[in-house]
């Protein structure tokens, strides 16, 4: 187990290293730079700026400096936001995105899994069709549509909630963004749970359990759910990583100062350090959660072993 973990962690850092390297050179290959604008900066001032941000050094030196920084988790200054480092950007925005994402994910799981089970247990009834139909519709609706509808109905028409802003994370400010953000994942979890439940429902061991005369609730709870959860748990890892790092659309529509927007905007701004920092951060989160999911899977799925037998 320990050896397996070590291997995985080393791989994780290797992946992060390759991602940093690839992103660094890809970003630099893009035309335009952090100081280009329709109002061209005079050549001499551009030189001052490049000097200040060490962009006048040869590219390989900049790359080495950057990698050295990443190792001690110093992700460098933002070019666009003066006086802010990428670490500041992450430290400020991530807790907000994580709170929003965490609650949304929890909501999706708590509501989505029971709904999916309910659908599967009542396979092909009206209730089941309503659940899967609703899930497909929700998953198909782009989140800006859902966000816009929520905003229109509950903020503009009914006036129950503020239209936007984070409001320091107060409940009345975050209800609408949470609903908007959870919609897609909720629908996805419902569909996944339902289909994997349907897969196990006719398996031999379930029939054996039934034949033994176990109560239906026990069969569902003890035998079916555990197996049906395998694909759900596996898909939760990337879902968690992506939802915690924020959603560009939901954050934009509700004016939430999370980090979801940073990533997209930094590319437009050619804010090299922010793009790189976000990439590294997201990559570590993704690989980390995949690792956690693998470990959890080993516990719930007897077919998965973390290391070779023997």
């Amino acid at each position: 187990m320990a050896r397996y973990l070590m291997q995985r962690i080393i791989t994780m850092f290797l992946v992060a290293f390759f991602v940093v390297t690839a992103t660094f050179f890809l970003m630099r290959a893009l035309p335009g730079g952090p100081f280009s604008s329709e109002r061209n900066v005079p050549e001499a001032i551009l030189k001052n700026l490049e000097r200040r941000y060490n962009l006048d050094k040869p590219l390989h030196e900049q790359y080495l400096d950057y990698v050295k920084g990443v190792i001690v988790w110093d992700l460098g200054p933002s070019f666009k936001y003066k006086g802010l480092t990428v670490n500041d950007v992450i430290n400020r925005g991530f807790p907000i995105s994580a709170k929003l994402g965490g609650i949304s994910l929890l909501l999706s799981i708590v509501v989505g899994i029971p709904l999916g089970i309910l659908g599967a247990m009542n396979h092909n009834t009206i209730g089941d069709r309503a659940i899967s139909g609703g899930a497909i519709l929700t998953a198909a609706a782009p989140s800006f549509v859902i966000a816009g509808v929520l905003q229109y109905v509950f903020a503009y028409k009914l006036g129950w909630f503020p239209s936007a802003t984070w409001g320091g994370g107060q409940l009345r400010y975050i209800v609408l963004p949470i609903l908007a953000l959870s919609s897609y994942n909720l629908a996805w979890i419902v569909k996944l749970t339902r289909s994997s439940m349907l897969e196990v429902i006719n398996q031999d061991y379930v029939r054996t359990a039934r034949a033994k005369g176990l109560r239906e609730l026990v069969i569902v709870y003890r035998h079916m759910i555990k197996n049906a959860m395998v694909p759900v748990v596996a898909s939760l890892a990337p879902m968690t990583a992506s939802i915690l790092t924020g959603s560009f659309i939901v954050e934009n529509v509700f004016g939430i100062p999370g980090i979801g927007r940073e990533f997209v905007q930094s590319i437009t701004n050619r804010d090299y350090t922010v793009t790189l920092g976000m990439t590294v951060f997201f990559c570590l989160l993704l690989v980390g959660f995949t690792l956690i999911a693998d470990i959890v899977l080993a516990f719930i799925d007897p077919r998965v072993r973390l290391e070779k037998e023997g």
Partner: peptide, 8 residues
């Protein structure tokens, strides 16, 4: 306020 989304 520093909100970018016009519809909002």
């Amino acid at each position: 306020y520093l909100i970018e989304e016009e519809s909002t």
